[in-house]
């Protein structure tokens, strides 16, 4: 069994980083659309992360992480090449269904840019016409442009300030694609809930099937706790075992976004608690390093 060694670390920006973790069995089993649960250390929490890529030959899986909360920031500090994760389990969730769609728009925004990549690649490999739409806040945050170009027949980059590609949200990109092509079979969108909601709203008038990948809070990721329940039409589903992919036109995004705020207060507490610890450690280090500070 793997000891979850980190073999590559790459920083895309101040907040976004890539980890490539050795796990040959998982690299073999992983399919686009699946996710893993990671624990950084014994006292850590279990956080779900979408599998951004997998390399069967090298026996690794790739995760792209945004340092937004306590755990992801701590990972940003601790995860270096050669270090190990405490736990890594997966691949979880139902793989994305390989559609027979001929023309597909693959939309990735923010955190969703990485996980949309293997989906776009799989579609390209099954001979679909792939239009990539990827969104970032500004030019500096853009990553994987070349990777996407290599597998997309068309690539539309969107930035909030227009510093790269077109100015506007990914929904602008979808509108452009829809205007140019009347025969789009499917839109696949991965990103923050508000973005996926926007995508679903954009395609609804056109009746284009729109699949989204949901990211609710989870504990076990195996269908046992029910924390990740989401409303799909009239039904309640668990994103971990019934998803994470669902029909975007049926998802109750408002319910999802409200449930994502379940632990806002506790998340802030955890972050403050951790930052306090970091500051204390820095002071100790500084004292030890300054002349006469050590007590040898």
């Amino acid at each position: 069994m793997s000891n979850f060694e980190i073999v590559t670390r790459e920083d895309f920006s101040e907040v976004t980083y890539l980890l490539e973790v050795r796990h040959p069995l998982m690299a073999r089993a992983a399919r686009p659309g699946q996710f893993v649960i990671v624990m950084l250390h014994e006292a850590g929490e279990r956080i779900p992360l979408t599998i951004a890529d997998f390399d069967r030959e090298a026996g690794t899986i790739t995760l792209v992480v945004q340092a937004v909360g306590k755990t992801t920031r701590e990972m940003q500090q601790a995860c270096r090449r050669g270090t190990h994760l405490h736990a890594l389990v997966g691949p979880m969730g139902v793989p994305s269904t390989t559609t027979h769609a001929k023309k597909v728009v693959c939309v990735g925004g923010g955190l969703g840019v990485a996980p949309i990549y293997p989906q776009a690649r799989a579609l390209k490999e099954s001979d679909a016409y792939v239009i990539g739409v990827i969104g970032f806040r500004n030019k500096d945050l853009v990553f994987w442009e070349e990777k996407f170009k290599a597998i997309c027949d068309e690539l539309i980059i969107c930035t909030d300030d227009g510093s790269a590609g077109i100015k506007g949200l990914v929904t602008e990109g979808i509108k452009q694609a829809v205007a140019r092509h009347s025969d789009i079979d499917e839109v696949i969108a991965i990103g923050p809930p508000i973005m996926m909601k926007g995508c679903a709203d954009t395609t609804r008038p056109f009746g284009i099937r729109t699949m989204v990948s949901l990211n609710p809070l989870m504990v076990d990721g195996t269908g046992m706790c029910g924390g990740c329940r989401v409303k799909i039409g009239e039904e309640v589903k668990f994103a971990c075992v019934d998803g994470p992919d669902f029909d975007g036109h049926k998802v109750d995004f408002d319910d999802l976004m409200r449930r994502l705020k379940r632990f806002t207060k506790e998340e802030r507490m955890a972050l403050e608690h951790w930052e306090k610890g970091c500051r204390l450690q820095q002071q100790i280090d500084a004292t030890a390093a300054s002349p006469g500070g050590g007590s040898e």
Binding site: M1, A29, Q34, V89, G90, M92, T222
Partner: peptide
């Protein structure tokens, strides 16, 4: 063998 989701990992 922990961290092993049978059905999905194999």
């Amino acid at each position: 063998e922990c961290n092993t989701l049978v059905g999905r990992l194999f």
